[in-house]
């Protein structure tokens, strides 16, 4: 479905070049839920943005459904995948109602019957008609993230890219959003790539997980192996250990 060969991303130029991603190769099967974990600065979000075509400086061979997707993306390319951002407060236009936010992608792609599509997209993410004409500031964080998901799925893309979709939310709201994502994945047979710093979240939603550190791919393991600690690298082991909580010193 998605193949990346030797992805490198640099920011800046001259002496100040930052290698955000160095030589990452990945392949994601159709219908798979693929996770990328790492700490800040590991380059996990940059990989996701490069797949989406949001990083200009990427030098790579990227194929989506067998077709090369490097270089300038067409409208048809864009419909293959949609993105959900981390911060629900920043990803909605502050002066547009939910209705306008959902209408925009339909207008860009000239899709018919926007009224029904919008109504359906809202009901799919569990929002009622009463939310349709509200502005973002009239919605809670969880509701905003639902709108962002509805907006991503209204074009019916086969691939959904999620960048820390729940890390700005409370635990109880996170549970609702994660359940929603797995339900929508089943219903629409989506391929999902999820980036998160939270091992629990990634293991919950994904079958295969890539671990990244300092811009490099450390290893790719199955969720079961991650849970059982059946991993090869020390870094992954340290990450698992740390996310289990604090271990008191014995005195």
């Amino acid at each position: 479905m998605i193949d990346i060969a030797d992805l490198s991303v640099t920011f800046g130029s001259g002496n100040r070049v930052v290698h955000a991603v160095r030589g990452v190769s990945l392949s994601v099967e159709e219908g798979e839920s693929f996770g990328i974990v790492g700490e800040s600065g590991s380059g996990k979000s940059t990989v996701l943005k490069a797949i989406a075509g949001l990083v200009p400086n990427s030098n790579t061979h990227l194929t989506v459904q067998g077709r090369p997707a490097s270089g300038k993306r067409t409208k048809a390319d864009r419909r293959l995948m949609q993105f959900v951002f981390q911060d629900p407060y920043a990803s909605l236009h502050p002066r547009q109602t939910v209705d306008e936010a959902l209408r925009e992608p339909l207008a860009i792609h000239g899709l018919d019957d926007p009224e029904n599509r919008i109504a359906q997209a809202l009901s799919e993410v569990g929002l009622g008609v009463e939310h349709r004409f509200r502005y973002p500031h009239q919605l809670s964080g969880g509701q905003r993230q639902r709108v962002a998901i509805a907006r991503a799925l209204i074009l019916r893309p086969p691939v959904l890219l999620l960048d820390e979709p729940t890390s700005a939310l409370d635990v109880s709201v996170q549970a609702e959003i994660l359940n929603l994502i797995s339900r929508l994945k089943q219903a629409n047979r989506l391929t999902i790539i999820l980036v998160s710093h939270d091992l629990g979240v990634v293991a919950h939603l994904c079958n295969r997980i890539a671990i990244m550190q300092f811009g490099k791919l450390v290893e790719v393991v199955s969720a079961a192996d991650l849970r059982s600690g059946n991993v090869t690298s020390d870094y992954t082991r340290a990450l698992i250990e740390a996310s289990r909580g604090f271990v008191r010193a014995v005195d």
Partner: peptide, 18 residues
Amino acid sequence: LIAAAPSLDHPKSELATL
């Protein structure tokens, strides 16, 4: 709250909502 959090050690098919 405990049930809603995804856990590495205890896989859940669906997270409990509050």
